[in-house]
Design a protein around this nucleic acid. Structure first.
Lengths: 218, 218
DNA sequence: CCGGTTCAGATGACACTGTCAACTGTATGA
DNA sequence: TCATACAGTTGACAGTGTCATCTGAACCGG
């Protein structure tokens, strides 16, 4: 907690500041508003500095997304450990953890579900492998993927506790897709109360009830 | 079909060419690849020409999205009129109409569900109203919204034929959100077969079966 | 047939972006 | 102590969206 002097500490601090600035700009005006120049300025450095911590703008945004995946992953993990909540309450909480991101940070939410770079990459550029090895401790997209997968695993565990191991995966996919769809439609303004006579919250409740009933039937 | 000479015809032709070029570029490399210069070049005009037909790049992309909404709206309409299909087959077809856009034109799909401009706009800029009045026959976002709503109405009719008027709206919203979520997760690479032990098609079948069963129960 | 008008399109310019190469200075470690 | 690694700076470049201005030909009232 002392005054930071070592170079490693200082570098870590700027990296953090860059991530925070990027996240803030993303919330304010979307990916277009995340300008490396402005990010640098808010972090107290200049436009070129981010390239010492990320391979580029895309890498920076991916890192922000990764932190969000980790955050909601932790959130669901905590939910899962809470003894005061019933199984279906935990499920509702997990679904809302995702949807709330869409509500509170819509632009960030869209970055979470961005089209991934070509996964196969068997050959790729060759250049890519080298870049990742040189730049970060680990390739950024890989980190984001791991974080996303962690969230999905936590989510899966919640579903399994309610619907049983057997159907957990199928239901899990359906529920996650359902929540993602609800969040996406609300976010894009296509979930109009006047048209559908229902709300995102009601739809989430329906999802929860659906799997709860099915779980009891087994 | 004769040689076009009148100015109105020529202008309409370039407008069409601009839309086609934009759609093609969008498919190839996403919104970032849709460059007004390249769009103009492919349409046989120069960079400034699109501004005679659209208020800007955003307006152009919105128009492309509107045409897609119309297309799948027509598709569902045709489905609805097909006497050879059962009610649940029609529903499956409607869901797949949307999902197939996500599969075949992923970038276009994301434009369909873009975050809408601030809807309230009671006061807005004041400038906006003026611009819309001057530029197109109608404001572009309004056109896209109408086209999207048309698709939703067609979809709603398909659901109503299966689940009854009473629950049509609630189920409709749930199904549409489900399909949107499935498409979105598949598109973003988050629907991994190894993890979920299921596929987009299976999930769609589950959705259809769900509402079919519920419809029979009433 | 004619002259002015309208308007699709061309062009020049501007501010701004992501990205890289080259450079600088300082903490680090032998 | 001194060479080195490396976070950060700076200059430059190719694109980008957007606007103001200009041009020329189709239009239309007389």
């Amino acid at each position: 907690m002392g005054v930071m002097t070592t170079r490693a500490e200082s570098a870590a601090a700027t990296r953090r500041a860059l991530l925070d600035a990027a996240a803030e700009l993303l919330d304010l005006g979307g990916p277009e508003a995340v300008t490396l120049r402005e990010v640098g300025a808010r972090a107290g450095v200049t436009r070129g500095a981010p390239y010492r911590h990320f391979t580029g703008k895309d890498s920076l945004l991916t890192a922000v997304a990764a932190e969000c995946w980790e955050r909601i992953g932790d959130q669901v993990h905590a939910l899962r450990a809470d003894p005061a909540l019933s199984a279906s309450e935990k499920l509702r909480g997990a679904l809302r953890a995702l949807i709330d991101v869409g509500r509170n940070q819509p632009h960030l939410y869209q970055v979470l579900f961005r089209r991934r770079a070509n996964l196969p990459g068997q050959l790729g550029d060759g250049m890519d492998r080298l870049r990742r090895q040189l730049c970060g401790p680990e390739g950024d997209p890989a980190v984001a993927d791991r974080a996303a997968e962690r969230f999905q695993d936590e989510f899966l565990a919640v579903v399994a506790a309610l619907a049983g191991e057997r159907n957990a995966r199928h239901y899990g996919a359906l529920l996650l897709a359902g929540a993602h769809g609800i969040a996406g439609m609300e976010l894009s303004g296509h979930l109009d109360m006047d048209k559908w006579h229902t709300s995102a919250d009601e739809l989430v409740d329906t999802l929860v009830r659906m799997v709860t009933d099915a779980g009891e039937m087994t």
